[in-house]
């Protein structure tokens, strides 16, 4: 199986993208992480979706999770609205946020190779280094696992 067969497009944000927009991208595409491009449009970093919550949840709630329970729905709405004024760039500069350099894999890499590189880099998204495509193409962890499990099932069926 060629890696390009498993490749997909993903929304790419920039450091100027608002927190609210980042949240929409994650929710709309059920993303596990967010790809951040530099000013030239080239993907550079990956931020786990759970870390993007840092833009939505104020510091005081993250520092003291019990406080979240004291807020009513109106207050929660205000919090989500406030995320519109914050940007992905703030996450990139926050020492408490996990920001990973984008993992780049060769188009002929095997599934085990990709899975190993993802595990080592603690990232669920890899950029396929494919000069034939102008648009960046990615491979994501669920696809890698799905392909690996499918291949195993098929091998099991043929042996039986």
């Amino acid at each position: 199986m060629q890696l390009s067969d498993l490749a997909c497009s993903l929304p790419v944000v920039t450091r100027h993208t608002s927190g609210l927009e980042a949240a929409r991208r994650i929710a709309g595409d059920r993303l596990t992480a967010l790809v951040v491009a530099d000013d030239t449009g080239r993907p550079r970093s990956v931020i786990p979706a759970v870390d993007v919550l840092g833009l939505l949840i104020p510091l005081y709630l993250r520092e003291d999770v019990r406080l979240a329970a004291v807020l009513d729905d109106a207050a929660a709405d205000e919090l989500w609205s406030a995320a519109g004024q914050r940007t992905v760039g703030e996450l990139l500069e926050d020492d408490d946020v996990n920001v990973f350099d984008i993992l780049v894999v060769e188009p002929d890499a095997t599934l085990v190779e990709v899975a190993t590189l993802m595990a080592a880099a603690h990232t669920s998204i890899a950029l396929i280094d494919d000069p034939d495509h102008e648009e960046p193409r990615f491979i994501i962890l669920p696809t890698v696992l799905d392909a690996a499990l499918t291949a195993r099932r098929l091998r099991g069926a043929s042996e039986a």
Binding site: L59, Y60, D64, L67
Partner: peptide, 13 residues
């Protein structure tokens, strides 16, 4: 450390 987060919440409100 205990009082600062709730203070930030109150000031925010």
């Amino acid at each position: 450390l205990l009082i600062a987060p709730v203070t930030l919440l109150i000031a925010d409100r």
